[in-house]
């Protein structure tokens, strides 16, 4: 068994070394494709996490008209909580708001409290912001709704754009690298026609003939995935250095390099295996020549 694996693997590596230029093209293109997809995927994950952290800021302030009663306030609270996309609605009594304001700017203490009662509304889903806003506005005794709409929309658009870019460019490169792997394997089948012919002559099983080529594709995929992981790691380190210098804040969270190696390496293996499987399935018509 081990003997068998060794033979097949040796065949695959020999084939790849003999055709190293083609293998290099396939591996590097796949690496760039996975770098873009994996890297942007990582950025998106980080941005989502950041957006969640910022969810405190993605809150709405709902100002009520003057002179609403306790009874009415609890009714409004129930109404707001019933709106889809609202995670939480907390009553901020006008006295408390005033106290906070005085703490910030003690000079205003000589005036009367100008604040009405209000609600802090935290959204469950920031994309529903405008909808929630208009529904709350339609409630009776609501005076105004305030929220950081522009920032929310900017974040959202940026993330949508990045998502689009990642899918488009990464997808394009994935297709290209797939074609390159397919091509590399096809060329290797042609380059190794002597070996293939001898194996056919002596009655080697079809899998013995094909597996080395599929292994070769998987190996290319693995190397592409590993290279992509290291590229992303390097890029992340560079960005972290820059941020540290500019913002003087703590470093970004540690990049999960082990996870990246496993995920991207695994994706590469599956992808490379698939492309080379297609390549060996296509018969190479050639005469065995008794």
């Amino acid at each position: 068994m081990l003997d068998r694996i060794e033979f097949l693997l040796t065949e695959a590596i020999t084939a790849m070394r003999r055709n190293w230029l083609m293998s290099f093209a396939a591996i590097s293109t796949l690496a760039v494709a996975l770098f873009l997809l994996g890297g942007l995927g990582y950025v998106l994950i980080r941005m989502n996490a950041a957006a969640e952290d910022l969810s405190g800021r993605f809150e709405m302030r709902v100002w009520l008209r003057d002179g609403v009663s306790k009874q009415q306030i609890s009714e409004i609270a129930a109404d707001i909580r019933a709106i889809k996309g609202v995670k939480e609605a907390r009553w901020v009594p006008r006295d408390i708001e005033w106290k906070r304001q005085i703490e910030l700017t003690p000079e205003v203490a000589y005036f009367d409290n100008p604040f009405p009662d209000s609600f802090k509304v935290i959204l469950a889903d920031i994309s529903l912001g405008p909808e929630v806003e208009s529904k709350i506005k339609a409630l009776p005794r609501v005076d105004a709704v305030e929220y950081l709409r522009a920032e929310q929309q900017f974040m959202e658009q940026l993330m949508n754009f990045l998502q689009w870019l990642a899918t488009f460019v990464g997808g394009l490169l994935i297709v290209t690298s797939g074609i390159l792997i397919y091509n590399a394997i096809r060329m290797n089948i042609l380059a190794r026609w002597r070996e293939v012919r001898i194996m056919e002559l002596v009655g080697a099983s079809r899998s013995t003939i094909r597996i080395p080529f599929i292994l070769e594709g998987m190996l290319q995929g693995l190397l592409g995935g590993f290279t992509a992981s290291l590229l992303i790691f390097a890029a992340q380190q560079a960005v972290a250095e820059q941020l540290k210098a500019v913002l003087m804040t703590a470093a970004l969270p540690r990049f999960p390099i082990e996870l990246a190696l496993v995920v991207l390496g695994g994706a590469g293996v599956v992808f490379g295996g698939f492309c080379s499987f297609l390549a060996v399935r296509e018969p190479v018509r050639r005469r065995m020549g008794v």
């Binding site: 012919r197 002596v202 009655g203 099983s205 020549g289």
Partner: peptide, 17 residues
């Protein structure tokens, strides 16, 4: 393949690596 393992084939051009 199994059929070919029941015979020895000597091709015209030797087919050596």
């Amino acid at each position: 393949p199994a059929l070919r393992r029941e015979m020895g084939i000597v091709p015209q051009d030797f087919a050596l690596l």
